[in-house]
């Protein structure tokens, strides 16, 4: 793909890859297009981070500012808050693309829709999950989370949020055609998030208590592998249903 084609795909903000572009090229174009759209939207990627900080702030106020109490609940609390932040960002995943017709373009592309969806979800993870993972240890310090847990917190959030993005995208694709899909989306997706939450928070807890976080992280990785294989096809199927019925 030439520089000119890339620029064009940025300017028309559709970037439907043509038949001459291979699968990798199409996915790369999709990624570049998503990044360009995100850049135009400015500081929107900061919203989940602010949400995470706000929710985290509520707990010392609502429960107790005692450091030892906060330290015991910090792993689960940070994980739940990060999970909710991911959930909130999901509603917008396909909505604007549905409104301006880009989704239809994606479907018309000769490349498999599942691959393009995977590229889209990857960018969502890059702009939501990764910042959340890097930001969470800072809030962990405020909750007096022992420093032994910080690295595991980052690792578990990096692995887990990718799974959350993939599963959540299925729900977002199912509800994209509905006028008020937001609450429904959380109802559909939250039960499916529970295994990720259990092992994510479990890994951090194990690290804090001086145990070995490896098994929990390995299971998070296993879930990510499973989601990577299955979810793109479910997302693509759900999008086809939402758009064409």
């Amino acid at each position: 793909m030439t520089r000119g084609a890339l620029n064009q795909s940025r300017t028309d903000a559709v970037g439907a890859p043509s038949a001459t572009v291979g699968l990798v090229g199409a996915c790369a174009a999709q990624v570049r297009r998503e990044l360009a759209v995100a850049r135009r939207r400015g500081g929107e990627w900061l919203n989940p981070l602010i949400f995470l900080a706000l929710v985290t702030m509520l707990f010392p106020l609502g429960i107790s500012p005692q450091p030892d109490l906060l330290a015991t609940i910090a792993p689960g609390l940070l994980w739940v808050a990060a999970l909710l932040a991911m959930l909130l960002s999901l509603d917008a995943l396909f909505r604007s693309d549905h409104a301006d017709g880009s989704l239809e373009q994606m479907m018309l592309a000769p490349q498999p829709l599942a691959a393009l969806c995977l590229a889209k979800v990857a960018v969502h993870w890059l702009l939501t999950g990764v910042p959340l993972a890097l930001f969470a240890p800072l809030l962990g310090v405020m909750l007096s989370l022992p420093t032994a847990g910080s690295l595991t917190l980052i690792a578990s959030l990096l692995l887990g949020s990718a799974t959350l993005s993939l599963i959540g995208a299925i729900g977002a694709a199912l509800t994209v055609g509905l006028p008020r899909g937001g609450v429904l989306l959380s109802l559909l997706i939250l039960p499916l998030y529970i295994p990720v939450l259990i092992f994510g928070a479990g890994a951090v807890q194990a690290a804090v208590q001086g145990g070995f976080a490896g098994p929990a992280l390995a299971l998070l990785g296993a879930m990510l592998a499973l989601a990577l294989v299955g979810a793109p096809f479910a997302i693509a199927g759900a999008l086809r249903i939402s758009i064409h019925g």
């Binding site: 299925i170 199912l174 509800t175 055609g177 509905l178 899909g181 429904l184 109802l187 559909l188 039960p191 499916l192 529970i194 295994p195 879930m223 499973l226 299955g230 479910a234 199927g237 759900a238 249903i241 939402s242 019925g245």
Partner: peptide
Amino acid sequence: ALRGAYGRNDQGAKAVAVLTLVGVVNIPII
């Protein structure tokens, strides 16, 4: 709830079917 949101149409039926299948895959994992 998803079926209620779509009403009784073909699109809703397919969406619910996908959700049910995703759910049944997840039940053992959960």
